[in-house]
Simulated scan of single mutants.
Amino acid sequence: MHKLSLLALSLFLLAGSAAHASEAIVKKARCVACHTIDQKRVGPAYQDVAAKYKGDAKAPARLFDKVRAGGAGVWGDIPMLAHPADKISDDDLKAAIAWILALH
Protein backbone atom coordinates (compact mmCIF):
# COMPACT_ATOMS: atom_id res chain seq x y z
CA MET A 1 0.00 0.00 0.00
CA HIS A 2 2.88 2.33 0.81
CA LYS A 3 4.34 1.85 -2.68
CA LEU A 4 1.00 2.73 -4.23
CA SER A 5 0.85 5.96 -2.21
CA LEU A 6 4.36 6.91 -3.28
CA LEU A 7 3.49 6.20 -6.92
CA ALA A 8 0.35 8.34 -6.70
CA LEU A 9 2.30 11.19 -5.08
CA SER A 10 5.01 10.95 -7.75
CA LEU A 11 2.45 11.11 -10.56
CA PHE A 12 0.75 14.09 -8.92
CA LEU A 13 4.05 15.96 -8.60
CA LEU A 14 5.03 15.16 -12.19
CA ALA A 15 1.68 16.41 -13.49
CA GLY A 16 2.00 19.58 -11.46
CA SER A 17 5.53 20.27 -12.65
CA ALA A 18 4.54 19.59 -16.27
CA ALA A 19 1.69 22.08 -15.96
CA HIS A 20 4.01 24.61 -14.38
CA ALA A 21 6.60 24.04 -17.11
CA SER A 22 3.99 24.53 -19.84
CA GLU A 23 2.73 27.71 -18.24
CA ALA A 24 6.34 28.90 -18.09
CA ILE A 25 6.69 28.14 -21.82
CA VAL A 26 3.66 30.32 -22.57
CA LYS A 27 5.15 33.15 -20.53
CA LYS A 28 8.61 32.79 -22.08
CA ALA A 29 7.15 32.80 -25.60
CA ARG A 30 5.32 36.03 -24.67
CA CYS A 31 1.90 34.57 -25.48
CA VAL A 32 0.72 36.39 -22.36
CA ALA A 33 1.08 39.69 -24.21
CA CYS A 34 -2.19 38.84 -25.98
CA HIS A 35 -3.74 36.01 -23.92
CA THR A 36 -4.62 35.26 -20.30
CA ILE A 37 -5.99 32.14 -18.71
CA ASP A 38 -9.46 33.44 -17.92
CA GLN A 39 -10.06 36.80 -19.63
CA LYS A 40 -10.14 37.95 -23.23
CA ARG A 41 -7.31 40.34 -23.96
CA VAL A 42 -6.22 40.94 -27.56
CA GLY A 43 -6.85 37.26 -28.21
CA PRO A 44 -9.16 34.79 -26.51
CA ALA A 45 -8.68 33.50 -22.98
CA TYR A 46 -6.99 30.12 -22.85
CA GLN A 47 -10.03 28.70 -21.04
CA ASP A 48 -12.23 29.80 -23.95
CA VAL A 49 -9.89 28.09 -26.41
CA ALA A 50 -10.01 24.92 -24.32
CA ALA A 51 -13.82 25.03 -24.18
CA LYS A 52 -14.14 25.61 -27.93
CA TYR A 53 -11.95 22.63 -28.79
CA LYS A 54 -13.05 20.29 -26.00
CA GLY A 55 -13.33 16.75 -27.33
CA ASP A 56 -11.80 17.64 -30.71
CA ALA A 57 -9.02 15.11 -31.33
CA LYS A 58 -7.70 17.22 -34.21
CA ALA A 59 -7.43 20.39 -32.11
CA PRO A 60 -3.75 20.03 -31.10
CA ALA A 61 -2.59 19.74 -34.72
CA ARG A 62 -4.95 22.45 -35.92
CA LEU A 63 -3.85 24.85 -33.17
CA PHE A 64 -0.20 24.04 -33.81
CA ASP A 65 -0.62 25.03 -37.47
CA LYS A 66 -2.62 28.13 -36.52
CA VAL A 67 0.03 29.36 -34.09
CA ARG A 68 2.84 28.69 -36.57
CA ALA A 69 1.11 30.41 -39.52
CA GLY A 70 -0.95 33.00 -37.66
CA GLY A 71 -4.48 33.79 -38.69
CA ALA A 72 -7.63 35.80 -38.16
CA GLY A 73 -11.36 35.50 -38.16
CA VAL A 74 -11.92 32.70 -35.65
CA TRP A 75 -11.94 34.94 -32.56
CA GLY A 76 -12.52 38.34 -34.15
CA ASP A 77 -10.94 40.77 -36.58
CA ILE A 78 -7.55 41.17 -34.88
CA PRO A 79 -5.06 38.78 -36.49
CA MET A 80 -2.71 36.55 -34.54
CA LEU A 81 0.82 36.92 -35.81
CA ALA A 82 2.77 33.86 -36.88
CA HIS A 83 5.04 32.31 -34.25
CA PRO A 84 7.97 30.67 -36.06
CA ALA A 85 10.12 27.88 -34.68
CA ASP A 86 12.95 30.27 -33.87
CA LYS A 87 10.61 31.94 -31.33
CA ILE A 88 9.08 28.77 -29.82
CA SER A 89 10.29 25.24 -30.54
CA ASP A 90 7.95 22.54 -31.84
CA ASP A 91 8.18 20.65 -28.53
CA ASP A 92 7.48 23.78 -26.47
CA LEU A 93 4.57 24.73 -28.70
CA LYS A 94 3.06 21.24 -28.40
CA ALA A 95 3.44 21.39 -24.60
CA ALA A 96 1.85 24.83 -24.46
CA ILE A 97 -1.11 23.70 -26.58
CA ALA A 98 -1.59 20.58 -24.43
CA TRP A 99 -1.58 22.78 -21.31
CA ILE A 100 -4.10 25.21 -22.83
CA LEU A 101 -6.45 22.42 -23.95
CA ALA A 102 -6.30 20.85 -20.50
CA LEU A 103 -7.78 24.00 -18.94
CA HIS A 104 -11.38 23.03 -19.73
Rank of each mutant, 00 (worst) to 15 (best):
M1R: 08
H2M: 06
H2S: 13
K3W: 11
K3C: 04
L4W: 07
L4S: 09
S5D: 10
S5R: 04
L6Q: 13
L6D: 11
L6P: 00
L6H: 13
L6V: 10
S10H: 00
L11P: 07
F12W: 07
A15T: 06
A18Y: 11
A18D: 10
A19Q: 15
A19Y: 02
A19G: 13
H20K: 00
A21N: 01
S22R: 00
S22A: 15
S22L: 05
A24K: 15
I25D: 08
V26Y: 04
V26K: 06
K27N: 07
K27T: 13
K27L: 10
K27G: 05
K27W: 02
K28E: 12
A29F: 06
A29I: 08
R30K: 09
R30C: 03
R30H: 11
R30M: 12
C31A: 13
C31F: 11
V32F: 09
V32R: 03
V32E: 14
V32S: 11
A33M: 08
Q39Y: 09
K40I: 06
K40M: 07
K40R: 14
R41W: 06
V42Q: 12
G43T: 08
P44Q: 05
P44M: 03
A45L: 12
Y46M: 01
Y46N: 00
Q47S: 11
Q47P: 00
D48Y: 01
A50V: 11
A50M: 13
A50D: 04
A50K: 13
A51N: 12
A51I: 05
K52T: 07
Y53I: 02
Y53R: 03
Y53D: 07
K54P: 01
K54Y: 04
K54T: 11
G55R: 12
G55C: 07
G55S: 07
D56E: 11
A57D: 03
A59D: 10
A59P: 09
P60A: 01
P60L: 04
A61C: 00
R62C: 00
L63K: 02
L63R: 03
F64N: 14
D65G: 15
K66W: 10
K66R: 06
A69E: 14
G71I: 05
G71D: 14
A72L: 03
A72S: 14
G73L: 08
G73I: 05
V74P: 00
V74N: 06
W75V: 00
I78E: 13
I78D: 09
P79F: 09
M80S: 07
M80P: 00
M80L: 12
L81C: 03
H83V: 15
P84L: 10
A85D: 15
A85G: 09
A85V: 11
D86R: 04
D86C: 05
K87C: 06
K87F: 06
I88Y: 01
I88E: 01
S89K: 06
D90T: 12
D90W: 02
D90E: 15
D90Q: 07
D91G: 00
K94Q: 14
K94N: 13
K94I: 04
A95H: 08
A95G: 06
A96L: 05
I97G: 10
A98Y: 01
A98I: 02
W99G: 11
I100D: 03
L101S: 01
L101K: 11
L101H: 08
A102G: 15
L103W: 08
L103F: 07
H104E: 14
